[in-house]
Design a protein around this nucleic acid. Structure first.
Lengths: 144, 144
DNA sequence: GTGTTAGCTTGTTATTTGCAAGCAAGAGAT
DNA sequence: ATCTCTTGCTTGCAAATAACAAGCTAACAC
């Protein structure tokens, strides 16, 4: 069963964001789609953090319900599903970049490569656009 | 009792962010400090979302453990505690602003005032700096 | 000194998570 | 064609966490 819905949490923007994203695993799934190029259930499941399969299924369903992720059958493997970001999901990239900038600054063990952080700080909009472009290119490789 | 710690979640920036912020209530507490000017336990507790008192105590302790929030005794009322953002906490303002921009765009019921959204989109850095300034000014009113 | 408020802590129950197992449908090898 | 493996889930169960309610101590307010 999916989690209790916070569908009445519209209006206030941070409450709206919290309802959609306020969960550890949701962040990591989005990271996997945006930065690791993952699109398949197994890819998420095999991530190093070890999400439980039922929790993954719930989170993907939640993200789909929120219109952030879209599920499509894999044209090459009819048994598989693929999970893509919608435009709404792709619009989260700038916020994700700012979180990365924050983490880079405050995590002494950060693994953010310096050029990545520099670029995110110097040209956040341009970098976000570029990342969105990469996402769409990656999507295409799964769909053609 | 506080939540299970995800203290080993350093390194990857979004995992680090998820460990510190990946929770509905955490978002809302930060919103209350940044945008509503709340500093006292009661202020958070009386928020319209209705956080439970034990959950609030846990979240504040978590935020303090993560160095995002700092607790100080109220100089005017010795029985009270006040919760302030640390520099690390104030550095979250740009990410919060991007989430607000996202929510404004995708929540049909958004209550973000248009000038606020416009400013956040046109001049994110300047706006974030200004908000941090407001936070520090507000802090001062509690401490003098 | 009596009543109220602030900031919690301590139960108790409901919900969610983490872990293990199972399972149907499709793909791949023989 | 059949046997096996993989994929994308669902189900069951114990443990952790959240929600709701009550209580408790120290400080004010009068």
């Amino acid at each position: 069963m999916a989690r209790k819905t916070y569908d009445t949490w519209a209006g206030c923007p941070l409450r709206f964001s919290a309802a959609a994203l306020g969960d550890r695993w949701t962040f990591l799934i989005l990271r996997d789609i945006i930065f690791k190029g993952h699109r398949r259930y197994r890819d998420f499941l095999n991530g190093e953090e070890g999400i439980a399969t039922n929790v993954l299924a719930n989170r993907l369903a939640d993200l789909e319900r929120h219109g952030i992720v879209e599920r499509k059958p894999d044209p090459k493997h009819s048994a598989r599903s693929l999970y893509f970001l919608t435009a709404k999901g792709r619009d989260l990239v700038p916020a994700m970049l700012e979180l990365i900038v924050w983490a880079e600054r405050h995590d002494p063990q950060t693994e953010v490569p310096k050029p990545f952080g520099d670029r995110a700080r110097a040209d956040p909009r341009g970098f976000a656009d570029e990342l969105v472009d990469d996402i769409l290119k990656r999507d295409a490789t799964y769909l053609d």
